[in-house]
Simulated assay, not measured.
Amino acid sequence: MSEIGPDTLRRSYAHRIAKLADIGDVRIEQAFAKVPREDFLPPPPWTVISLGDASETNRLADIYENVLVAIDRKRGINNGEPALHAAWLDAVSPQPGESVVHVGAGTGYYTAMLARLVEPGGHVEAFEYEPDLAAEASRNLQSYSNVTVHAGSAFGRKLPEADVIYVNAGVIAPDAEWLRALKPNGRLIFPWQPHKGWGPALLVKWREKGFAAQVLMSVGFISCSGMTEKSSVRHLPSEADLATVRSVWLRDEIAPDKNAVATYKQVWFSSKVVDR
């Protein structure tokens, strides 16, 4: 019996991931079906990680499952879980012609997804702090004319205006420049990790009256390199506190008030609802 070809493998994988993530945008499934995951990974044997267990494999089919695949195990750098990213992509909903900033691009697999989703006419500015990963991402994304890879931190710098900012590394708090870079109706998604190693994914949306925030699933991400914000929060928010967050504010624009859930050097989180 002949082995299943890579195109068939990817289509089947994309369909399973779309069902797992319960996504509503068929374009996301199509992106997963088109982008070869192996092109963004080290050479085989690959280390696949599922439910904390790691195993080595040379089988292409094994990386087309909802698993992490190690990029550098010593540094804890992995190609992330596909169903989680499918859900995030669905949440931020990149559209043709939009501009995206990708923070923590790694070797570029999910950058490639973003690039496909904003075609035609859209562009992705991808930032990767680790020089070796940035160089690898540049090589891997050579065929994507609508992607620019930046070797450096996306913290503490003025960013291009963006419809979507997609952050793939855990942060104590979002950089103020991320919020300032959002265009009207822009969306930011990031892993907020006030506690070491875990916290909620937060979806932030630009509104005329402020930045609305929605708590999504609990996630664990490697910490973002080059982060300037330290643990300067007055008190660490509890899990119950995290669930109450409904907005994010820039401290140099509005001072924290009685609705503050967590206050940092540049930004603060609030239970106040932003209507529009």
Rank of each mutant, 00 (worst) to 15 (best):
G24T: 12
S218P: 13
G197V: 01
E65R: 15
A126N: 06
I254Q: 14
G76N: 04
S247Q: 11
M217G: 06
D7W: 04
P96E: 06
K19P: 06
I4N: 00
A126E: 00
V147S: 13
L188T: 03
N58P: 06
E136S: 05
D241S: 01
S12L: 04
E119R: 15
P6E: 09
S55L: 13
G106N: 06
I222V: 15
L41M: 05
F127I: 12
D22V: 03
A213G: 15
W178A: 05
A87P: 01
Y144F: 15
A83N: 11
L216H: 00
D39S: 15
W206E: 04
G186F: 09
S138G: 14
N140A: 10
P36Y: 05
G121T: 02
R187H: 11
V100L: 13
I28K: 02
T148V: 03
A243T: 10
A181V: 02
A262C: 06
A151D: 14
Q95D: 03
P194G: 10
M113Q: 11
V261L: 01
A112I: 09
S55A: 13
T228R: 14
E136H: 07
L179E: 05
P191C: 07
M227G: 02
S143G: 13
Y13R: 12
N146R: 10
S55R: 15
I23K: 03
Y13A: 02
P160K: 09
P256N: 08
H102N: 11
E38N: 07
L236I: 01
M217R: 15
G52A: 11
V261C: 11
D163L: 07
L133K: 03
G80T: 12
L179R: 02
V215M: 03
G52K: 06
Q30K: 14
